[in-house]
Design a protein around this nucleic acid. Structure first.
Length: 552
RNA sequence: CUGCCCGUAGCUCAAUCGGAUAGAGCACCAGCCUUCUAAGCUGGGGGUUAUAGGUUCGAUUCCUAUCGGGCAGGCCA
């Protein structure tokens, strides 16, 4: 529809401007229905080059507009906006389109089947997932769903930092617990993990339990002298715990990558050699440095420490080189903003390797901190102190759908306050239920009608002319744009906002109009409209990974 | 001190590429169930978009400065 109107405007513009090739016709959805169904600011854009009053230009444009059946009325308003009012029959087309496209409505083929990887969560295997990981999980999963809806071939990936100093720390903590040390014991590891789950791991280790995660299975030796065994068991144990967390959150990954594998395969060493050969490194103070200042960093960064180990960003560079070699020309990393300093380093490393990776690759979506409130007080999230709200606790208290919605419905780059009491106490006022309720209401009406939904697409829709119906149809027609924009902006929250609006229009319609009326043609047209709305709500809820219940 | 993110109604948050009278929910006030699910709807009050400048037909949006909050600036991740 946008294309049709743009085309009309372009033809009109040709009568005023000799060269229309540089002209971009921008059509927007006015916020207010008084301003029509589409509005165009072309006259204002042309005001300067033509040195004329925008309203005068608008009048000339409108006069030159070729006649079209799809448009009922064109008006000039405000500073020079050209407002288009669609004919009723044009508005009604969307209902048919939705019913015919079904679950594919709103999807497009922008990605052309190309590979894209979304890496998200990527928590260290040093504890259960907490709310911050939950935000990453909700946002990352929605991004993946959005990209898939835009025609991309999506791979969801989780990267485990299972090789660094934090893992040594974990191993020491488990050992200390297994030896019966309390966390406040002077000989407990200084930066050890204090959470009770460490004691659980120690107990399981001593009991020689077996745990499995992804493709590995580890049985504890129970031998306290064998730190390698403690380490492997602890990591596997926590990976298993995280798997359970993710399952409770209904999130699935296609690939789990391990930092340790990059070391054992020699890939890290290869990267370091390649970087040395690139001439972008130097030795100083017994350490090896990368000249990241050549790539917009404030200072150079250490690659190899005095003790000989590599700093965390070195395997990160290796990992991303692997991603590139695996054919992902588009990669999106969803992570907490507290790790934003790695972006410059990873990109610097990749550029220094000079293997043809574009400068801005990979893409990052950073989410800000989540503050958890309980009983009017902030719950501090400290893994080492061990007092924090786990994702699984949250899901149990608030529910999976509500938790996902809360965490994905806000812009990633603003801080989020998650009030547990509020989320739990106001379960019924939760926006996710508002949306799902709209869906359930439609299901209920359709089932009471009892007719054949599949036949609705071919029904005569001319009875749909009331304002509440026009509003709803207009909203439905926006869905494909929302899917496209949200993917372009990597902003899943736009889907959540849209769904709230769509549900609101449905609820208004529901209260304002009786659907199951005696007049057959009117009834069928209304069945078609609410059935189309049901489909859009379902498709939208699906993008957020939420259920679309038929009964509530 | 330096870099990044944020600052919108009492609270939690929106606002598409710079567009028209800045919108929802919660809370507050007044209405709507004999009628398809009241987990709903309708109406009302509530704002100098942190502050001061700048860019232009037009700024919540872009630029500069200031204030406030968060994060980072470890040879931790």
């Amino acid at each position: 529809m946008k294309d049709i109107i743009s085309n009309l405007l372009l033809q009109a513009a040709q009568t005023l401007v000799s060269d229309t090739s540089q002209l971009s016709i921008m059509l927007e959805r006015p916020k207010s229905a008084e301003h029509g169904d589409f509005a165009c600011n072309l006259a204002m854009m042309l005001a300067k080059p033509l040195r004329q009053n925008p309203r005068a230009i608008a009048e000339q444009l409108v006069a030159a507009l070729p006649p079209s059946e799809v448009i009922a009325k064109v008006e000039i308003a405000g500073a020079g906006f050209i407002n288009f009012y669609l004919a009723d029959t044009t508005k009604q087309l969307i209902v048919k389109q939705i019913l015919e496209a079904g679950s594919q409505f709103g999807h497009n083929s922008t990605g052309e089947g190309e590979k894209v990887q979304v890496e998200f969560v990527s928590a260290n295997p040093t504890g259960p997932l907490h709310v911050g990981h939950g935000r990453g999980a909700a946002v990352g999963d929605c991004l993946a769903r959005l990209l898939a809806a835009n025609g991309w071939d999506v791979t969801r990936e989780f990267y485990y930092n299972d090789a660094g100093a934090q893992i040594d720390n974990l191993t020491k903590s488990v050992l200390a617990r297994a030896q019966g040390l309390a966390t406040d014991d002077p000989s407990f590891p200084e930066n050890g993990y204090h959470g009770e789950y460490i004691a659980d791991i120690a107990k399981a280790y001593l009991a020689k339990e077996t745990v499995s995660a992804d493709d590995i299975e580890v049985t504890a030796s129970g031998d306290l002298a064998n730190t390698e065994s403690i380490r492997n068991f602890s990591v596997a144990y926590l990976r298993h715990e995280q798997d359970l967390d993710l399952r409770a959150f209904q999130i699935q990954f296609d690939v789990f990558s391990l930092e340790s594998a990059l070391y054992s395969s020699g890939k890290v060493e290869e990267t370091v050699q390649a970087l040395i050969e690139s001439g972008k490194t130097y030795e100083s103070e017994d350490a090896l440095w990368l000249k990241t200042t050549d790539y917009d960093d404030d200072k150079d960064r250490v690659m190899r420490k005095k003790e000989g180990g590599y700093t965390y960003f070195v395997p990160d560079v290796t990992y991303h080189l692997e991603k590139w070699n695996r054919g992902f020309t588009k990669v999106i990393n969803e992570q907490g903003a507290d790790h934003h300093s790695t972006i410059t380093r990873v990109r610097a490393g990749l550029q220094a390797l000079d293997v043809g990776i574009p400068e801005g690759w990979p893409n990052y979506v950073l989410h800000q901190m989540v503050t958890v409130m309980r009983g009017g007080e902030e719950v501090k999230l400290s893994k080492r102190a061990g007092s924090y709200v786990t994702l699984r606790d949250l899901i149990e208290e608030v529910g999976c759908d509500a938790t996902r919605f809360f965490l994905a419905a806000r812009r990633a780059d603003s801080q989020l306050i998650f009030d547990i009491d509020l989320a739990r106490a106001q379960t019924n006022d939760n926006p996710v239920y508002y949306i799902q309720y709209a869906h359930a209401r439609i299901c209920s009406v359709l089932s009471q009608w009892g007719g054949d939904v599949a036949q609705l697409a071919s029904r005569d829709l001319s009875a749909l002319s009331a304002p509440s119906e026009a509003t709803l149809m207009q909203k439905l027609s926006e869905f494909p744009e929302v899917v496209k924009n949200a993917a372009n902006e990597l902003a899943p929250h736009m889907v959540a906002n849209y769904l709230k609006e769509c549900a609101s229009d449905l609820h208004s319609y529901y209260n304002d109009t009786k659907f199951l009326v005696d007049d057959e043609a009117t009834k069928l047209a209304r069945m078609a409209l609410i059935s189309a709305t049901q489909q859009v709500l379902k498709n939208g809820l699906d993008l957020l990974g939420l259920s679309a219940p038929s009964k509530m």
